[in-house]
Design a protein around this nucleic acid. Structure first.
Length: 312
RNA sequence: GCCGGGGUAGCUCAGUUGGUAGAGCACGCGACUGAAAAUUGCGGUGUCCCCAGUUCAAGUCUGGGCCUCGGCA
């Protein structure tokens, strides 16, 4: 899998910063194709709320890992990672430049850092069992069980974060080995140039507000109503995404439409702050750019310098 | 104009018998290896409207002023 002869450009950053547009621009200039790193754009039929690239954009530039599962299916991190590696290597093999573009920090990190993910598929019945144990005996008791098996993992996970405690226990119980020993990073698998798209926080917040209003104009309510009408449950991962969750609250009569819109804007701002935990302004391996202040010419010059050992 | 309520964090507000202030939300910061737009942890950011007075000490008491909301004219 490790192949330094493959060049990968990664475009990361918070939502609504302009990653999609930059990715398409660079792909056009450099003969590239996009590999999406977005945990919500994987779902078919969820287009408006996820700000997916438009049909026209996708006709011009091939996009991979969009629309790969139905909204009631789950695509796990390990499955995403494997699919992303396949897509990247396929693009490179055809002599095109792969661009990894997206705001899901965990996906990006798994691909760029070469995470070795313990090969334990979700065990639904075990998860339910452990959830019930936590509900009955408390989160601390569940965490205590993990501490007995894998003290290092227990030390790294807050006892109140039941979901992560359960996953750690799941891996330990299924493999008989501590998860903390199984989690490794093999390092960057390719030659990578990472671009971070950012903007001043107030400007980003304004763009979010504007974009949410445009989503409403574009028919987000109808999109969500259609998904619910097709039988997709509100507690599916797909239906708890930004926009879908809050419009769901509106459709169930829990809030007004105006309230739902305000909630989407608020929650999207929160999400942006969370994304900056993955994509750090101080990260030396990321070349940060503000699209309103950097020309694509500057960027292309930087990239050819950065990747000059490789034909770009 | 008169009567009454109210001016405390970005917002809505709490604040005991006077001891330089605290909740929710917003906001800021962190964790993250098969649910990640998930889940989860931490943080109070302040001319307490202004001026003067009483007091060792005033968000709190007194006087004046300003602003605001409601009622009556």
């Amino acid at each position: 899998m490790r192949d330094a002869s493959i060049t990968l450009i990664a475009i990361v950053g918070p939502t609504a910063s302009g990653k999609t547009a930059l990715g398409i621009d660079l792909a056009t200039e450099l003969g590239g194709e996009i590999v999406s790193a977005d945990s919500r754009q994987i779902y078919r039929g969820m287009d408006i709320g996820t700000a997916k690239a438009t049909r026209a954009e996708r006709d011009r530039i091939p996009h991979h890992l969009l629309d790969v599962v139905e909204p009631d299916q789950v695509l796990t991190l390990a499955e995403y990672q494997a699919a992303a590696y396949r897509a990247i290597e396929d693009i490179a093999r055809r002599g095109r430049l792969p661009l990894l573009v997206g705001g899901t920090g965990q996906y990006v990190a798994a691909v760029l850092e070469g995470w070795q993910i313990p090969e334990v598929a979700p065990q639904e019945s075990l998860r339910r069992e452990l959830e019930a144990y936590a509900a009955e005996n408390g989160a601390e008791a569940l965490h205590g069980r993990l501490a007995g098996i894998d003290p290092a993992a227990a030390a790294a996970i807050d006892y109140r974060n039941v979901r992560r405690v359960i996953r750690a226990l799941e891996v330990c119980l299924v493999t008989g080995r501590p998860i903390s020993e199984l989690q490794r990073k093999s390092g960057p698998p390719y030659t990578i140039a990472q671009l971070g798209v950012t903007r001043p926080r107030p400007e980003l917040y304004e763009r979010i507000d504007w974009r949410v209003d445009r989503m409403i104009d574009a028919g987000l309510v109808a999109e969500v109503r259609g998904l619910a009408g097709a039988g997709y449950a509100w507690d599916l991962p797909a239906m708890t995404g930004l926009g879908y969750r809050q419009i769901g609250q509106y459709l169930r009569g829990e809030v007004t439409l105006d309230e739902a819109i305000a909630l989407i804007k608020r929650d999207t701002r929160r999400f942006v702050r969370q994304q900056y935990n993955w994509f750090r302004p101080g990260d030396e391996s990321i070349r940060w750019i503000d699209p309103s202040q950097t020309s694509s010419g500057d960027l292309l010059a930087y990239l050819s310098e950065r990747l000059k050992s490789q034909p770009v």
